[in-house]
């Protein structure tokens, strides 16, 4: 390359002009992608918040103001609505029990799948997913009959059992890939140093898997939090927030839809924000 052949190449003689262009375009594309993805997530949440905090007349008006009018009318109506607080508390309880149960059952299953070979392993993996193959409205009737007969009806535990069934496939498969990513040699080393099988799992594998397990617990929490149909059929007095609100919101005036949407989204957002460290940690493991 001769000096002065191209003014653009002059400052960086090591890189020819086309390569610099490509790199610049790539950077630009990367930034645009980041902005696009952020907007993808943030714009709906922003609109939800603006409308939830606006006076009813502003909600139907257009164009929107950038900053909401901070009229708490719709949200206040919501919080006064009889039973919202209890329903919120019920939702938290059901989701917490679902989380504990699905990890308690799912993590050992995922460990067994990743470490042992046993007959029917492939079939087992398929069957686990099969629990998601039947639509809940189909299962709800026999379930409700059974629950009424056994006394599980209208209880936190009963609903949590159903939600656990829904969350279990994800818990099993996520923990399966998690344990598969932890080298078995680490465990073997622990055995040679005198650990029993259980001790090796608890002291060596668990600390490594914990962030990922926490992430799959978050997933179970969100599945339970969002489930409507079973909750609407199986609980009457102890309704969860989604069962309590979602059906009514669908047919409510626009301002209340936004207020209710905000009330449903905020707790889940706060929860995910609180455990975000674990989520990122899981991605770290997956990338290794």
């Amino acid at each position: 390359m001769t000096a002065g052949s191209s003014p653009a190449a002059a400052p960086a003689p090591a890189a020819p002009a086309p390569a610099a262009d490509v790199r610049r375009a790539g950077r630009w594309l990367f930034r645009a992608g980041v902005v696009f993805l952020c907007a993808w997530v943030l714009v709906p949440i922003y609109l939800l918040m603006v409308n939830a905090l606006s006076a009813p007349a502003d909600v139907t008006g257009f164009p929107k103001r950038l900053v909401p009018g901070f009229d708490p009318g719709s949200l206040a109506f919501f919080l006064r609505f009889q039973g919202v607080a209890e329903a919120l508390w019920n939702s938290v309880q059901v989701a917490a029990v679902t989380m504990v149960l699905s990890i308690g059952i799912g993590a050992p299953a995922g460990y067994a799948l990743s470490r042992f070979d046993f007959p029917g392993k492939g079939m087992f993996r398929l069957l686990v997913i099969m629990t998601r193959a039947f639509p809940l409205p189909l299962l709800a009737l026999p379930l409700a009959v059974l629950f009424i007969r056994t006394g599980l009806d209208d209880s936190i535990v009963g609903l949590a059992l159903v939600h656990t069934t829904l969350a279990l496939p994800f818990a099993v498969l996520i923990t399966f890939s998690l344990f598969s990513g932890i080298p078995v040699e680490l465990e073997e080393a622990a055995w040679t140093l005198g650990c029993t099988r259980l001790q090796a799992v608890l002291r060596v594998v668990m600390p490594l898997a914990l962030p990922g397990i926490a992430a799959s617990a978050v997933f179970a929490f969100v599945i339970s939090w969002n489930e409507v149909f079973a909750a609407a059929v199986l609980t009457i007095q102890n309704r969860t927030l989604t069962a309590f609100l979602l059906q009514s919101l669908d047919v409510s005036p626009l301002p209340l839809k936004f207020a209710g949407g905000a009330a449903l989204v905020i707790p889940a957002l706060v929860f995910i924000f609180a455990v975000r460290r674990y989520l990122f940690a899981m991605w770290g493991i997956a990338n290794r």
């Binding site: 709800a140 009737l141 409700a144 009959v145 009424i148 149909f229 609407a232 059929v233 007095q237 009514s248």
Partner: peptide
Amino acid sequence: DYQAADGGPWLTRLQAEVAA
């Protein structure tokens, strides 16, 4: 205790109680 429900859950709940 007034509880408003969608048609689907309304019907399923009623059928379940009658069946049980």
